[in-house]
């Protein structure tokens, strides 16, 4: 894993991509810091961290687009997959390389906080919490980017689809406010999910029987949920969308709260997407 990590880190800085990511990220965040904090004298540093979040929509695809898709395009993935290292190590190495570049870029912005602390009243622990939150949020975004990159053979399409995936996550809170409630809408949603899972099983196994078994089990589970826990069932869409509410869970960090459930959420979200990435690559071995 270390070999992959080092190789990816070298690639970031032997090609312009790492410099472009860092340079543009710091250019825009420098603008925000200047206009939000320096020009007004504001010492509310976590509001600066909140303000630069939109930057991630564009910066994260830039960071992750080539990670796996480039291996497929240049056919070097065959070499990697036949090497002694596991797919998990490959994915972790690539993810960590992107994460370290991102974390190092954020480290530069600590100099902004030092300026605030020197000339004003900086709440240090709140700022530390803000950085913990933004690192966790960034790791989740990077995991999504790595996953999308594994699905694509083309860097540009990987960047494009990562951007849309992040955009969808961005507006998830807004979507939640307009989704219909009630048993019918949630029932339809539950069946779409069950059909999706059955389709996933079919694409994996090629077995109609396995897919039908999943369809039957899923339908029965949904029915049981409707009868046993109607309150949970009637909020199925909202609850499902909430699992993608990455930004909502970042808010406590900006007001000075380090919440255990938010940390667990980001870590598990990142882990699930890395696991899915491993599965996508593994599938190419046996499919």
């Amino acid at each position: 894993m270390i070999a992959i990590l080092m190789r990816e880190l070298r690639t970031y800085f032997k090609t312009p991509i790492g410099y472009i990511f860092m340079g543009l990220f710091l250019l825009v965040s420098g603008f925000f810091f200047t206009f939000v904090n320096l020009s007004t004298g504001s010492t509310y540093f976590t509001s600066f961290l909140q303000n630069i979040l939109f930057l991630y929509l564009f910066a994260i695809p830039l960071l992750t687009m080539r990670l796996i898709s480039e291996e497929r395009r240049s056919r070097t993935d065959q070499l990697l997959l036949t090497s002694p290292i596991t797919v998990t190590e490959i994915v972790l190495g690539k993810f960590l390389a992107a994460f370290f570049v991102y974390a190092f870029t954020l480290l530069v912005t600590v100099s902004y906080a030092i300026v605030v602390g020197t000339f004003g009243d900086l709440w240090i622990w709140e700022t530390v919490g803000g950085y913990v939150g933004i690192l966790l949020l960034g790791s989740s975004f990077i995991a999504v980017g790595v996953f999308v990159s594994a699905l694509s053979e083309n860097q540009v399409s990987a960047a494009f689809f990562t951007f849309f995936a992040l955009l969808l996550i961005w507006f998830i809170d807004l979507v939640k406010t307009v989704v219909p409630g009630g048993p019918v809408a949630n029932g339809v949603f539950a069946m779409i999910i069950v059909l999706g899972v059955a389709g996933y099983f079919y694409s994996n196994t090629g077995s109609v029987v396995a897919a039908a078994a999943v369809l039957l089990a899923g339908t029965l589970t949904a029915g049981a949920l409707y009868i046993a826990l109607p309150l949970v069932f009637n909020r199925l869409i909202i609850n499902a969308l909430s699992w993608f509410g990455l930004l909502e869970r970042f808010n406590p960090f900006t007001i000075g709260l380090l919440r255990f459930d938010a940390v667990v959420f980001y870590v598990s979200f990142t882990s699930v997407f890395l696991y899915l990435t491993v599965n996508v690559i593994e599938k190419r071995r046996w499919a």
Binding site: L26, L27, S39, G41, S42, T43, Y112, F119, G120
Partner: peptide
């Protein structure tokens, strides 16, 4: 409440140039 930063105009300019121009460039 946090007390705002107390900076002179020159200090503001220096840091603005550092963060917006020097480091990214």
């Amino acid at each position: 409440f946090r007390f705002p930063m107390q900076m002179t105009g020159m200090q503001q300019l220096v840091f603005a140039v550092l963060f917006v121009v020097v480091i990214p460039a």
